[in-house]
Simulated assay, not measured.
Amino acid sequence: MKFAEKIKALFRRNKLSEETFEDLADLLIEGDMGAALAFEIVDSLKAACKKEGISDPDAAKAKLKELLRPYIKTATFELDPGKLNIVLILGVNGVGKTTSCAKLAQWAGRQYPGNNVILAAGDTFRAAAIDQLKIHGERLGIRVVAQQHGSDPGAVLWDAIDAAAAAGAQLVIADTAGRMHTRSDLVKELAKLDRVVSQRADQANYRKLLVLDATTGQNAMRQAETFHEAVKVDGVIMTKYDSTSKGGMIIAVSRQFGLPTLFLGTGEKYENLQPFNIDAYLEDFVGE
C-alpha cells in the first residue's frame, strides 16, 4: 500500500479521536519525517482542530495538508541566459548521482533548446563513474569532458569550463566523488572545485545540488547534514521517488536544513526527472 493510502485510510474513520492523532504521528514517523517533526505537526493539527471546531476527518486531512505547506521550502531551477551556468552534483555513492547528471542535462536541453550542455566526469575516484557518464553522453548526444581514473577533479572541471567557453555552451554539469568523507576532507576537496570556478568563471551562475535517495530514511538526513555543514548546498535532487518511497524526507530536509527539493527522480529513464511541485507532492503524500 502506498503511503498516501495509509493516510487516507486513517482519515476515513467516522470521527477524530486521540487514537486517530496517535496513529497519525506513528504514520508520519513511518513516512520518514522523523519523530520530533511528526509530533510537532500532529500537535499543531490537534490544536487547529480544537480551535476551529474541526471534527470531520476529511476536513482534518485538508488542515494537515495546509499545516505541512509552510514546512516545505520551494525554489525553481533556472539557467541565467547571460552567464555560464555551473552545477556541481554532490552525494554519496549509490544514490543515483551520475544518472542524475545525465537526467538534468537532458532536462536542460529540453527546457533551453539551442543551448549546449557539457558534462564533466569529476568523480575520478571511481572509474565506473567516468565510463557511465561517457555512455550517458553518447546516448544523449552531449559532450563529456573526462580524464583518466585517479586524476584531479579540479583539472576536469577546469577543462570543462574551457570547453564551454570554446563551444559557447551555457551549462556545465559536473559529477563529483561519492565516497563519504569526513567533514574536513569534504571541505578540502570541494574548496578546490570552488577555486577552479572562481579562477576560470568567476561570473558564473554556480550552484551545488545534493542528490539524496528518498528510500533511505534517516541516512539521507545524515548525508544532508554532512554536506550542508561542509559546503553550502543550494538544493536537493530526491531520487528513487516512486512507489517504494514515503516522501516525508522532503519535509524533514526542508525543515531541518532549509533546503528546497528542486527535482524528483521518478524512474530509470532520462525523462524521469520532474521539477518539484508542492501541490502535487502534498496530494501524493497526504492523498487527494
Rank of each mutant, 00 (worst) to 15 (best):
L68E: 12
G114F: 09
I86V: 15
S151F: 06
G82M: 08
P70I: 05
N115C: 00
V187T: 04
Q148T: 11
P153F: 07
A75C: 02
G178C: 08
G114P: 02
T176L: 04
R179W: 10
I135D: 03
D175A: 06
D56P: 06
G109E: 12
P153M: 03
Q106S: 14
L67T: 06
R69P: 05
P81M: 09
L88D: 01
G94T: 11
A62K: 15
L67Q: 07
G82E: 15
G168D: 13
Q147E: 13
H136V: 00
G53K: 15
Q132W: 01
Q132V: 07
G122N: 05
P81V: 05
G150Q: 07
G141P: 07
P81L: 12
A155Q: 14
A62V: 10
T76N: 15
L193W: 13
G178V: 08
F125I: 08
G109K: 10
G122K: 01
L88Y: 03
N85R: 06
E138R: 15
P81S: 12
K61N: 01
Q111M: 08
V95C: 00
L67P: 04
D80S: 11
L157M: 12
N115V: 12
K73N: 09
E52T: 13
I161M: 02
K65H: 01
G122Y: 02
F77I: 02
K188Y: 12
I72K: 06
K83E: 13
C49K: 15
P113K: 02
A59T: 15
G82D: 15
P81C: 05
I118L: 06
A177P: 09
I173H: 07
L88H: 04
A108L: 04
T76D: 14
E66A: 03
D80Q: 06
I135G: 03
K63G: 01
P113S: 11
K51F: 07
E78V: 06
T99R: 07
N115L: 00
E78C: 02
T176I: 07
K192Y: 13
H149D: 00
Q132Y: 00
H136D: 04
Y112M: 01
G109N: 00
L79I: 15
L193C: 12
A160M: 07
E52Y: 15
P113F: 09
D80P: 02
A129G: 03
P70Q: 05
G137L: 08
V144S: 13
A166T: 06
N116C: 01
L84G: 00
G109T: 11
Q106D: 09
N116I: 00
L119K: 02
I118H: 02
G109W: 00
A191C: 08
A127H: 12
T76Y: 08
N93Y: 08
K61M: 09
I118G: 01
A62D: 13
V117Q: 07
R143W: 10
L171Q: 08
G53D: 07
